[in-house]
Amino acid sequence: MKHSFCLILFVLGTSLLKAENGAFSDGKLLSVVLVFASILIGFFIYLFSLDRKLTKIENQIKDE
């Protein structure tokens, strides 16, 4: 079930890329997607570091 979902996503994504081929090859739309993805990744890394901090505090509370 999970795999088929991934597959559908992949097919959708690639077909979208192909359908909008003009925008991606000539229009440089890929750069915009990369920019937004890098922002998201940055936020996720920040969230991960917060997560680690919270885990540390939780462990500290458990210890006492």
Binding site: A23, D26, G27, K28, L29, S31, V32, V35, F36, I39
Partner: peptide, 15 residues
């Protein structure tokens, strides 16, 4: 030269 990347204006400059 910008073409579609003009949209980056909303994701780069506001940062």
């Amino acid at each position: 030269i910008l073409r579609e990347t003009i949209r980056n204006m909303y994701y780069h400059v506001p940062l």
